[in-house]
Design a protein around this nucleic acid. Structure first.
Lengths: 196, 196
DNA sequence: CGGCAAAGTTGCAAATTTTGCAACCAAGAG
DNA sequence: CTCTTGGTTGCAAAATTTGCAACTTTGCCG
């Protein structure tokens, strides 16, 4: 499982290189400086290669973040099977999301860029939607094999992603350095209780 | 308030005409048949006008649906001020969403198209996000004037939009003609209780 | 080990899409 | 009535996207 072959690893490597380069360029020089040409030049690759991997710059910029989102579902699956689903989410998500986000000022910049650019907003929503779907699958595996529970899993995954998105937004624009993990825990707890 | 001037009404009219035309063409001839050129031709307008109003075909197709989503917030505001927020949501959303969606087969087609086209998925998510934001504003007005409650309103609005999106998806692909309003009521009730 | 098949990378040019600009006409203000 | 603002449109330049084919590397099997 940890050996998907040299070929795939190389492909993933170029993807990651391009994505990280695009991400850094956005943070350091602004979104306008990020183009398929500029990114592939900075990464020592052909512009055509960029387009082979990504539809556009927004997809490239957020690709690595998207990959990390997908690991959340795996961490859900790694928890003991009999653990109640809410305990599982509360155990996994806050630390994982906090680690994934890292520096607050970086995300403050990202949120600003997203707010200014419709295409970045759209791509960010796509990332969250894919995260939601993968979470819903993992949740559904835990709860039951019934098809009927699919709706429940979707609802729960949606709530979880909403909690993530809301806390990250709040955290990113907060002046005081409140802990993201605590913020997310608070949001999830509220949702579990049922929002007064 | 009901008289925004002839100018704005005319602009809204051409927007609506283009959007409805694009919507119909998607349903009847498939997404591939929808282009700025074909739509504006069918609507007796210049392609340049299409691009003046819309960024791309996906935005045009979903524009009217987006407008209807924005009316949800107004309907929330129209409820008695002392009504508990969950009662308010349960009273407004199910009937409003059911009326907004109309025919099930139409939405089944829409969901299929969304599933097949990344750009349509992205635009649909943008519509839902704008809906979420307008709902959050309306909810925040009702609950309190405190800035602190903004997070709560966002969480609640996110949960509501998740409920809408989940029920519509479930309803659209259901073979039996279950009532969309009942489905949404069920989802909202689950969220209010806190998802066992 | 060879060598075939499959898949990633790249360049180039055609095709398509997007944008800037300016003209024109209708609507609102005074 | 006149002036100003803003929606509609055509045209052409600019930018982006796509198709195609060549070349290279990896995976696989005899």
């Amino acid at each position: 499982m940890t050996q998907p072959g040299l070929r795939e690893r190389k492909k993933a490597a170029t993807r990651a290189t391009l994505s990280r380069t695009a991400w850094s360029m956005m943070l350091e020089q602004g979104l306008d400086a990020v183009t398929p040409e500029s990114v592939s030049a900075a990464a020592d690759m052909a512009p055509r290669t960029f387009r082979y991997h990504f539809r556009n710059r927004e997809e490239a910029i957020l690709d690595e973040l998207a990959q990390q989102h997908l690991t959340l579902a795996d961490q859900i699956r790694a928890r003991p099977a009999q653990e109640p689903i809410w305990d599982c989410l509360l155990a996994v998500l806050p630390p994982a999301v906090a680690q994934m986000c890292g520096d607050r000022t970086v995300f403050a910049t990202l949120m600003r860029v997203i707010g200014d650019n419709p295409a970045m907003l759209a791509q960010n929503l796509v990332v969250l939607e894919h995260s939601r779907l993968s979470l819903a699958r993992a949740i559904n595996e835990r709860t039951s094999t019934e098809v009927h529970t699919a709706t429940f899993a979707n609802l729960l995954a949606g709530a979880a992603v909403t909690a993530i998105s809301t806390s990250v937004a709040h955290w990113a624009q907060s002046t005081t350095d409140t802990d993201l993990a605590d913020l997310l825990t608070s949001c999830l707890t509220q949702l579990r209780r049922g929002l007064p």
